[in-house]
């Protein structure tokens, strides 16, 4: 071996990562992506619901007049539209969440995994029962 070859000069390799620029609007390119983003956006409407809930509690604590005032505010067309959109998003959250739960929850009966449809079906049944109980409480028993 010649010493010449050992003295060859090496320069460190600095590879640049090849990263394709992703458009800010990547989620508009496919329905699956859009559905994913819509599911994530449902969280904004959940937060909005909590704000209206807090407003209701505050109005209740302030008395009859404040409560009536809040009911009036809820009749404002803009607020009604916002609540209708919120309702759609919140239901979308429930549906996607139950679908997700069916994937995540693994229940075994007699060594066999309970099929996803039964898990999500159970969630929907529970949803119905819970909703009925809450409606019964709110509607005055």
């Amino acid at each position: 071996m010649k010493s010449e070859s050992l003295q060859a000069r090496y320069t460190l390799n600095h590879p640049r990562w090849y990263r394709k620029r992703v458009s800010t609007y990547w989620w508009l390119q496919r329905w699956e992506y859009l559905r994913f983003v819509l599911r994530e956006v449902s969280s904004v409407f959940i937060a909005f619901f909590v704000v209206t809930m807090l407003a209701q509690i505050y109005a209740l604590s302030r008395g009859l007049e404040a409560y009536a005032e809040l009911q009036n505010w809820l009749r404002n067309p803009f607020v009604v539209a916002l609540n209708l959109i919120s309702f759609l998003f919140v239901v979308f959250h429930s549906v996607t969440w139950f679908g997700l739960a069916a994937r995540a929850v693994v229940v075994r009966v007699g060594g066999k995994r309970v099929p996803e449809i039964l898990i999500s079906g159970g969630h929907y049944a529970g949803w119905l029962v819970v909703s009925a109980i809450l409606a019964w409480f709110l509607l005055g028993g």
Partner: peptide, 25 residues
């Protein structure tokens, strides 16, 4: 909590009751 409880609350308290679709408590 949101999946199970919020839809019915939102529907009743924010829509059905103030808009008179159901008799409000």
């Amino acid at each position: 909590v949101a999946a199970f409880l919020i839809p019915v609350h939102l529907f009743l308290s924010n829509l059905a009751f103030p808009l008179g679709w159901l008799k409000a408590p």
